[in-house]
Amino acid sequence: MMQFEIGGKIINNRLFVGTGKLPDYSIIKNMYEELKIEVFAVAVRRINTDRNKGNSILDFIPRDATIMINTSGARNHKEAVKIALIGREITGSNWVKIEITGEMKYLFPDNEETIKASEILVKEGFKVFPYISPDLIIAKKLEEKGVSAVMPLGSPIGSNKGIDSEILIKAIINEISIPVIIDAGIGKPSHAAKAMELGADAVLINTAIATSNDPLNMARAFNYAVRAGRLAYEIGLPEEKDYASASSPLHDLIKSLD
């Protein structure tokens, strides 16, 4: 089933899309209408008087779509909380992705600060989606704080390396009961399919779609992959073996061939 419940809503598409680096915001509307993508992440920034005065990304996000406010730019929990409150004031949306950057080379999240921000924002009535390094204990602590999902990274943001910590991600999927969204590093449709086959509830993809030569059609390719991976997961994937297991019968072989 592509439909699932998350953050107090019924969502019909397990592909969430980040809108950073898109060459043209009008693609968002096409993704919503043609591909039925429902969740879009956005960031909060100062208005640049030369570039975007009077021209908001909100003009391009359909009213029925779900806006996920990203706290990117925050370096600690206090900044993340403030960005979330600003984002909610502007959009009315209470979905917040907590992204607190701990260092600038790998853009790894500060899990400790993320827990602090999550606790505050859950109390403020937000649906909280923390972006974390894949760590089961952190995920469990966040679950206890009442977050709506956890978003472990597949690999560093924008790296296109896919899921580089499968065992850690799998442990989170197996051991917590809230949804798990794989966020960051998913570069190819096969990575997205892999995430879904592992049992992730959704994926959030930005760079691989936004910076492709044709973002709308790349989103379409990811859409297929997410659906394929999820369907296979729900049916149940076969067991892996180290040796061959013949597909054709090994009995009743023809005896007069030589």
Binding site: V42, V44, I57, I90, T207
Partner: peptide
């Protein structure tokens, strides 16, 4: 400071 939304991940 006057702020708004932009594309983001």
């Amino acid at each position: 400071e006057i702020v708004s939304l932009v594309g983001g991940g």
